[in-house]
Computed example of a mutant assay.
Amino acid sequence: MWVRRSVLLLAVATVTLTGCDGGDPPAPAASTAVSASPPAPPTPAASASASTAASKAAPAGTPTVTCAEVRTARVRGSKPPYSDFGEAGVPLVDGAWSGPGGLTLAAQAPCATGNLDPHGGISTLATIMSSTTGTTGRFWGLMLCKKESGAPVCTVTLILNDREPVQSVSVGGQKATVVYLTRTPDVPPAGLNRKRTAVYQFGNNTLLELSHTDEAYTP
C-alpha cells in the first residue's frame, strides 16, 4: 500500500516537472492589429474612365464667333434694311458694307459672348449701325452671331430708335444687358439726355426686354 502511494506521488511529480520545464514554450497569440496604409493610386484605366465620364457630363461646346470675327460676318435680319438681303445676308468687309442707294452698315465696338440662348449654346451679342447717305438717321441694332458651316453669321434681332447709340453690352445668366443713350419725349432727335440700362432675354428668335432703368445724362 505504501509502495503504490509512493509510485503515484512520483508519477505526479514527473508530470508536473515535464509541464514546467520540458517541451517548447507556447506560441504567442497572433496579433489582430491592422496597420493603416495609404490608398493605392488609381490605375491608368481607372483614371481614363473617370476622365471619360467627366467629359460626357460636361456640355458639348459649340463653335463661337469672336468679336473680331464679327467684322467679316454675313449680316441678315427680319426687319428692313436687313430683310432686303434675304437669308444669305450681306458680307461685312473689315466691319463695313455699302450698297445701292447709299445704305451703309458698320459694325460697332460693343460686343460680348455668353450663354444667352438656353437651347442654342454660346452666342455672341454684337452691335451694328445702319445709315443712308444724305440723311441724318443713325440706327443701332443688336445682333446674335453664330457659325454656320464654319463661317460667322449675324442676325439682327432688335433695332433701336433713331440716334440711340449703344455704349456697352454684356451677357450673363442667359440675359443680355445693354446700355445705350436715349432722350425724353421733349428732347429733339439730335439731343440725348438719358442713359438707359436695359435687360433682355432671348425668346421667339428675338430679344425681349425684361426691364430698364434710366439715369440723367449730359453730353
Results as ranks from 00 to 15, higher is better:
residue 96 A to F: 02
residue 70 V to S: 03
residue 114 G to A: 06
residue 141 G to L: 02
residue 163 R to T: 09
residue 74 R to H: 11
residue 103 L to I: 11
residue 146 K to M: 12
residue 164 E to A: 06
residue 128 I to F: 00
residue 212 H to P: 03
residue 117 D to F: 02
residue 51 S to A: 14
residue 42 P to K: 02
residue 114 G to S: 05
residue 76 R to Q: 14
residue 219 P to S: 13
residue 151 A to V: 09
residue 27 A to W: 05
residue 171 V to W: 03
residue 128 I to H: 01
residue 72 T to S: 06
residue 168 S to E: 09
residue 8 L to P: 03
residue 40 A to S: 09
residue 172 G to A: 14
residue 6 S to D: 06
residue 155 T to M: 08
residue 98 S to R: 14
residue 121 G to Q: 05
residue 34 V to K: 11
residue 104 T to F: 00
residue 217 Y to N: 04
residue 91 P to S: 14
residue 182 T to Y: 05
residue 135 T to E: 15
residue 138 R to H: 11
residue 9 L to F: 06
residue 49 S to G: 08
residue 159 I to Q: 03
residue 122 I to A: 12
residue 30 A to F: 08
residue 21 D to V: 15
residue 106 A to E: 07
residue 133 T to D: 14
residue 113 T to P: 03
residue 8 L to N: 06
residue 129 M to F: 03
residue 90 V to E: 01
residue 184 T to W: 05
residue 52 T to N: 07
residue 212 H to K: 13
residue 79 K to E: 14
residue 77 G to T: 08
residue 75 V to H: 04
residue 77 G to Y: 03
residue 168 S to H: 08
residue 42 P to M: 08
residue 149 S to P: 04
residue 149 S to D: 13
residue 163 R to K: 11
residue 134 G to E: 15
residue 59 P to C: 02
residue 123 S to D: 07
residue 117 D to T: 10
residue 30 A to Q: 13
residue 191 G to K: 12
residue 156 V to S: 07
residue 142 L to M: 12
residue 61 G to W: 04
residue 200 Y to P: 02
residue 124 T to W: 03
residue 61 G to R: 14
residue 209 E to H: 05
residue 52 T to F: 04
residue 185 P to V: 12
residue 14 T to L: 14
residue 109 A to N: 08
residue 185 P to F: 04
residue 6 S to I: 12
residue 175 K to W: 00
residue 12 V to L: 15
residue 148 E to K: 12
residue 2 W to T: 09
residue 167 Q to S: 09
residue 209 E to P: 05
residue 140 W to P: 02
residue 23 G to H: 10
residue 171 V to F: 01
residue 112 A to H: 03
residue 93 V to W: 03
residue 133 T to K: 15
residue 149 S to T: 12
residue 115 N to G: 05
residue 86 G to Q: 11
residue 70 V to L: 12
residue 116 L to I: 07
residue 39 P to Y: 03
residue 7 V to Q: 01
residue 99 G to Q: 01
residue 145 C to N: 10
residue 177 T to G: 02
residue 20 C to N: 05
residue 48 A to R: 09
residue 8 L to S: 10
residue 89 G to T: 07
residue 9 L to V: 13
residue 27 A to N: 07
residue 11 A to S: 11
residue 60 A to K: 13
residue 121 G to Y: 02
residue 15 V to Q: 10
residue 159 I to H: 01
residue 52 T to R: 07
residue 161 N to Q: 11
residue 208 L to W: 06
residue 194 R to L: 15
residue 209 E to F: 05
residue 10 L to T: 08
residue 123 S to R: 10
residue 141 G to S: 09
residue 127 T to S: 13
residue 136 T to Y: 15
residue 188 P to I: 10
residue 52 T to I: 09
residue 121 G to D: 00
residue 5 R to H: 12
residue 151 A to W: 04
residue 173 G to W: 02
residue 165 P to H: 01
residue 33 A to H: 06
residue 12 V to N: 11
residue 17 L to G: 12
residue 105 L to P: 00
residue 100 P to I: 15
residue 139 F to G: 01
residue 16 T to H: 09
residue 188 P to E: 10
residue 51 S to F: 00
residue 86 G to I: 13
residue 41 P to L: 08
residue 159 I to N: 04
residue 54 A to N: 01
residue 19 G to W: 14
residue 19 G to I: 14
residue 160 L to H: 03
residue 7 V to W: 02
residue 81 P to K: 01
residue 15 V to A: 15
residue 155 T to P: 00
residue 138 R to V: 10
residue 10 L to H: 02
residue 33 A to I: 15
residue 115 N to L: 07
residue 173 G to T: 00
residue 164 E to G: 03
residue 208 L to H: 10
residue 24 D to L: 15
residue 191 G to F: 11
residue 138 R to L: 12
